[in-house]
Nucleic acid binder design. Structure first.
Lengths: 325, 325
DNA sequence: GCCACCTGATAATGCGCATTAGTGCGGTCA
DNA sequence: TGACCGCACTAATGCGCATTATCAGGTGGC
């Protein structure tokens, strides 16, 4: 239509006028005019094939991206991811096709994985299969995990929340309020985030000269209350609720008789109106940062690992040690 | 690695053993073995190029897909869309790259639209630009709109909510309760959904022999209450709240003195605990159905147009006409 | 010995683009 | 006059796959 070759259109379209190749202003204008009239758009698939890049970032989650159950927990991450993708000019590809046999989890590498359609991808989830991780690494697929991950045959690029520091700060606050015997309720393992919290707890208790206790769990209320702990660090808000309820059932006042600190954020709605002391996971910021880091990896490579600070939440469940003050 | 040609691999990979082409079991097994060992996966982009299909469905929204404001309204649609995409074995592409100049809406056809990367797409939004719609039609891009849309240079494929029927049922219910003078509050235009509600109202009122009133809006409380209407149909829950508040401000009891029916669902959080009579928009089902219809369009073409029934909500704001019963 | 026929696999082609190595042309300089 | 150069543009190639036409080798019939 413009009387020029496909090459010329390509050059005009991509503004590649710098590298030795020149297009006369008249020709350029003629081409642009036709493009405007027809609304021509280069086929992204072909582009990808030739250019080896897509401007499409994949988002992988083991659960549905738009869940109904854990919506409140994952949503903020996705808000951040989308925000940053929009700014970066990228589209997001949700791997919804990862076949799910009844009741099974999605898999990153299914028989017909489409992960390579994206330039790279962002991983989201409480835990991520080590197999999947190490395969991502060995195949050299660019990715960034939201949430710290242990090595999986090599260092994993991630942006996580700095749980150890957050927990440490809370332990120090408790110590400053006179608490010495502190209990940690929760598995302290299974996911990096849990391990990090427990580690932060253990180290901080040691540093402040306190005494760290590990009752079996919130269920084992007898051991918990028999331990003499004056403050309980609950691995998750759900644990915190369980502890608080058990305490009240025994006529103990929270925080009058027992302080409770809830770590993390509710991964599923917890029916409570307790204003726990704890911290806020910077989920939105983590999502944003993950996309930024992915972009950086794509451009310059590397294995970025970042921890974002959590903001402490005062709450009303952490009080001075009974009898003090 | 298997000592065969690229063609053979392709044939094995796609199981195309029916159409005259044959692969011996030994060769096939040898190829599959290598595929298993290496974890080879066909490049989706190249596949798309050659096959002209992707198994990627685009999702276009004018606002962010993961919004914070209107989250509650759009979320159910997306849940349905994702569910069905997962069952269909498709991935979802979120057009987050549609450049947004500060404060402007996204555009389907931006300078570098990637819409054609997807096999087709689902459109979401209260209103959709007629320009965009007619261009989708004229360019023959397969799509399905969530929500009924008027013709835009041709019939638009959609799956919508059957507002006219729902509103009619509510009007009939009101009529059965003795109401005759009924008012509709809202613009009744601007979006197809509003027009449909007003139309359902007008027709149903005429059919039941009642009297339909159109005060200017909830703001114009004087006209509304002076009209003698015993029941108000509010175009949106927000309008319903406004009406109910205005009524209470005048000492009128809802529904004792005035019944209020709220149509649709809150598009943004409305701070109220009123249990309005009205109906439930089958949002999740609409999302699911949109994906199903898109699949159908891709396979067999056509322009499906469907309306899904809304479930009536009893609520507590629609009572028998004062002085009756 | 020749042709017809079937089987199993491959060479060749094209999808729509980006990229590179030219190509033709008019002008410069020695 | 011819070598040389910059300019504006194009022909050709390849990206990784699906598809189609073709081919080599074997079998059977007459």
């Amino acid at each position: 239509m413009a009387g020029v070759s496909q090459t010329t259109v390509s050059l005009v379209l991509n503004g590649r006028a710098e590298g030795g190749v020149r297009i006369s202003p008249e020709t350029r204008e003629r081409v642009l005019q036709v493009i405007r009239e027809t609304g021509y758009v280069a086929d992204p698939a072909a582009r990808r094939l030739a250019e080896r890049r897509n401007r499409i970032y994949g988002v992988f989650t083991y659960e549905a991206v738009f869940p109904t159950e854990t919506a409140d927990f994952y949503h903020p991450f996705l808000v951040g991811i989308e925000e940053c993708a929009e700014e970066t000019g990228c589209d997001l590809l949700l791997f919804t096709s990862a076949k799910v046999e009844r009741g099974e989890r999605r898999r990153i590498f299914s028989s017909e994985s489409r992960i390579r359609l994206a330039d790279g991808c962002v991983l989201l989830g409480r835990t991520i299969d080590r197999e999947d991780l190490s395969r991502l690494l060995s195949e050299g697929i660019p990715f960034v995990s939201v949430g710290r991950r242990d090595d999986a045959g090599g260092p994993v690029p991630y942006v996580g929340a700095d749980y150890p520091s957050a927990v440490r700060a809370l332990v120090e606050r408790a110590a400053a309020l006179g608490h010495r015997r502190m209990a940690y309720v929760g598995a302290g393992e299974g996911a990096e985030s849990y391990a990090d919290r427990l580690r932060g707890f253990t180290e901080a208790v040691a540093a402040t000269g306190g005494e760290g206790l590990r009752p079996a769990g919130a269920q084992d209320a007898d051991r918990l209350f028999g331990s003499g702990a004056s403050v309980v660090f609950a691995e998750e808000p759900a644990d915190g609720v369980a502890v608080a309820e058990a305490a009240r059932a025994r006529g103990l006042d929270v925080p009058g008789d027992l302080s409770v600190v809830a770590l993390g954020a509710p991964t599923r709605p917890v029916p409570t109106d307790i204003d726990f002391a704890g911290f806020r996971i910077p989920r939105r910021e983590m999502g944003r940062r993950a996309v930024e880091l992915l972009t950086q990896v794509l451009e310059r490579g590397g294995t970025p690992q970042e921890l974002l600070a959590c903001e402490l939440v005062e709450g009303s469940t952490l009080a001075p040690l009974r009898g003090r003050r």
